[in-house]
Amino acid sequence: MLDDRARMEAAKKEKVEQILAEFQLQEEDLKKVMRRMQKEMDRGLRLETHEEASVKMLPTYVRSTPEGSEVGDFLSLDLGGTNFRVMLVKVGEGEEGQWSVKTKHQMYSIPEDAMTGTAEMLFDYISECISDFLDKHQMKHKKLPLGFTFSFPVRHEDIDKGILLNWTKGFKASGAEGNNVVGLLRDAIKRRGDFEMDVVAMVNDTVATMISCYYEDHQCEVGMIVGTGCNACYMEEMQNVELVEGDEGRMCVNTEWGAFGDSGELDEFLLEYDRLVDESSANPGQQLYEKLIGGKYMGELVRLVLLRLVDENLLFHGEASEQLRTRGAFETRFVSQVESDTGDRKQIYNILSTLGLRPSTTDCDIVRRACESVSTRAAHMCSAGLAGVINRMRESRSEDVMRITVGVDGSVYKLHPSFKERFHASVRRLTPSCEITFIESEEGSGRGAALVSAVACKKACMLGQ
């Protein structure tokens, strides 16, 4: 009897593995994704193909990295998701002549009506938060230079001027797309009239992360975010950046690689679950690469896999709870928690219980395998993109072996128990001629924006502006 049951459990697990095998990517698959990513990057950089390229390769006008001589107080704003952060950054000489960066910050959550109302409502709310922060720190009387981390696709015309191309991540505030974001912020500050600010720089969160990590390690020339969304930036040779005049030196390019796949480059790798996630998203047909990796989508992918296993009578005796059938019910943090389970399955059992399920031991094991399959594919897909960037940098610099540091931020990278190990191992397999160091950014977005502002202020002083 026991043997029969054991055989049935083994057969069930084997069927589960057959279904989950769809998520496995072979090294040849990853090399294919990497080569296609490089081709799209090239198209994004070139003037004649930029418009139709899915990977936009947006110039950021960040050319210099901090040298350690900029000092002063800077205000930093960070808008990239449902939370908005205001930070005071003091850049100065530390002990023994070292450079020191001290920060104080406060988080504000953005109400739904500000995210989806008008641009005026959104930026009025942001300036209200700045006003509140300055009151708390008794700094209303000071006109501070301000660095703005704005983590949406922007076409820069200068370091302090950028046109919002399109909202992502659930934002829909009308009247912002096609307009200068810094102008919208300046107008809102003017409307309030109770404080003055000098907006000197606007950067993407990947750029802010790279600059913040450069402060720790001067070989950091790539910034990457794996959180709600997924994106990367890197220092490109100016001669390859056709959208900006000049051939000397390097400029940081914001790849906006989340949109890779929007022209069909990933079609052969998309599964039924991916198509369902895409169809029910706020932007169907867009940001397809990001939807395979980002935390906004990972939990939902797992939920759809679990429903398939229920329908195949391989999980929960073929019956799903009402909660499990509800879109968004299986949160991405559950994926991390399930994979963090120590082996007694308590954590998995508790999560499934909150979803109205009474799982068996085998159910718990199957749910864990589903989570591992989805998150491992995410790590491997992400590795193909980064390997594409790094191999490109090595080739354009004609280096036999390139040493490089990548600064990384984002909740999936930082909080998932195995993502970074799987990701690092896969990147290294795909970049055999590179020695890569990964560092995690601390308060990256805010500190990085302030350091970019410090560079901009120093330049302005040198130019006598």
Rank of each mutant, 00 (worst) to 15 (best):
R5A: 10
Q26W: 12
Q26V: 04
M34F: 02
T49D: 13
T60A: 01
Y61H: 02
S69T: 08
D78Y: 09
M87C: 05
M87Q: 01
K90S: 02
E93K: 13
G94V: 07
E96L: 12
G97Y: 08
Q98F: 12
T103Y: 06
E112V: 07
D113H: 08
M115E: 10
S127A: 10
H137R: 05
H137A: 10
K140T: 06
T149P: 06
D158T: 15
G162M: 10
N166T: 12
W167R: 13
F171R: 13
F171V: 12
K172Y: 03
N179W: 12
L185I: 03
I189T: 01
G193Q: 10
E196F: 08
D205A: 14
M210L: 01
E221Q: 11
I225K: 01
C230W: 05
N231S: 05
M235A: 00
M238P: 00
M238T: 03
E242P: 05
G246L: 02
E248Y: 10
E248M: 03
G249W: 03
V253I: 08
T255N: 07
G261V: 02
E268N: 09
E272L: 05
R275C: 10
R275A: 13
L276Y: 15
V277H: 11
V277N: 13
D278F: 04
E279L: 15
E279A: 14
P284Q: 14
E290N: 12
K291C: 10
L292F: 15
L301T: 03
V310H: 09
E312M: 15
E319G: 14
E319V: 14
E331F: 15
V338T: 00
G343V: 03
K346M: 07
Q347G: 08
L357P: 04
R358V: 10
T361I: 02
D363W: 02
R369W: 04
C371R: 00
R377G: 00
A378E: 04
H380N: 14
L386V: 11
R403V: 09
V408G: 08
V408T: 12
V412H: 11
K414H: 13
H416Y: 12
S418T: 13
S418E: 10
K420T: 06
S433R: 14
E435T: 07
E440C: 12
E442D: 09
A454M: 15
C457R: 12
C457S: 12
G464Y: 12
